[in-house]
Design a protein around this nucleic acid. Structure first.
Length: 274
RNA sequence: CCCUGUGAAUC
């Protein structure tokens, strides 16, 4: 059953719902994990209506599955339904609180996010990171920093949020310092640094960050592209576009916008259809 | 063995 659960999850990640269902039917005695994974398969592929029957058929209601559905509602911007589910769930754990807090934060309902935060009996690194990010996004930089300082062992994501909080403040020196001091860095850290340089108008430094990062994803590329284009380096922007990973609509959009900004309609149209 | 947090572009 271990193996079948894993297989189930793999099909789910590929978006193959039919195959996942066939695997589930072969499991003789599905446990909470099997059902929870199947629910996540439906929910993460945008088929909540398929998830609900599985949920109802489970012997005991599993809080993880409640959380999965909560998250699915949040991702489809059904915030009022998410809140209703949150209020009617038999119990909450930290993940439940984190999920509804983030849902509010990501939709710009910062006051609601804060209310959830204050009502949570227990918080973890994810709670504090999510709330700090909400403070930072709503311009309350001091509160964000204060909360981040309370995290005992910051992980990479918490450090990334710290970095962007200082970037939002325009404190480039502190950004560099934090970046150097971070124990682990990932693409997001590099991109946040790149963006901090770019906002400060230092395209050279942004380009340095871009060239130094171990891997480029579409967000890093479109940020770099935009930094070049908005400072008049159209040829450099084009070079980034040509090397951008995969069929990226993000980099494509940025490139079209870049040509548009420079009044080159023909190139913009050509890129659009490329 | 399952659920939650961080970086853009769309002048």
């Amino acid at each position: 059953r271990f193996l079948l659960n894993t297989l189930l999850q793999m099909y789910g990640k590929c978006g193959d719902i039919a195959a996942a269902c066939r695997v589930f039917d072969q499991i003789k005695d599905p446990n909470v994990f099997s059902s929870a994974i199947l629910i996540a398969v439906f929910a993460n592929n945008g088929h909540l209506e398929g998830a609900l029957p599985v949920f109802e058929r489970m012997r005991e209601c599993d809080i993880v599955s409640f959380n999965t559905i909560l998250q699915a509602l949040a991702q489809h911007s059904k915030l009022d339904q998410a809140k209703f589910l949150f209020d009617s769930m038999p119990e909450h754990n930290t993940v439940s609180g984190n999920t509804i807090l983030s849902a509010y934060a990501q939709s710009g309902h910062y006051a609601y996010a804060e209310a959830v935060f204050e009502s949570m009996p227990r918080v973890d690194t994810i709670t504090c990171t999510a709330m700090a990010s909400a403070y930072s996004a709503s311009g309350k930089i001091e509160q964000a920093k204060a909360l981040l300082n309370l995290i005992p062992e910051k992980d990479c994501v918490a450090w990334n949020v710290t970095l962007t909080a200082y970037a939002a403040e325009g404190n480039l020196e502190r950004c560099k310092q934090i970046f150097l001091d971070m124990p682990e860095k990932d693409v997001v850290s590099w991109t946040a640094l790149l963006q901090a340089y770019s906002l400060a108008g230092d395209v050279e430094a942004a380009a340095w960050a871009f060239d130094s990062m171990p891997e480029h994803d579409s967000i890093a590329s479109s940020n770099m592209l935009h930094a070049f284009a908005s400072s008049g380096h159209l040829a450099d922007a084009r070079a980034v576009y040509d090397r951008a990973p995969g069929p990226s609509t993000a980099a494509g959009n940025a490139m079209v916008a870049a040509y548009g900004m420079h009044g080159d309609v023909h190139a913009a149209v050509a890129t659009f259809y490329a």
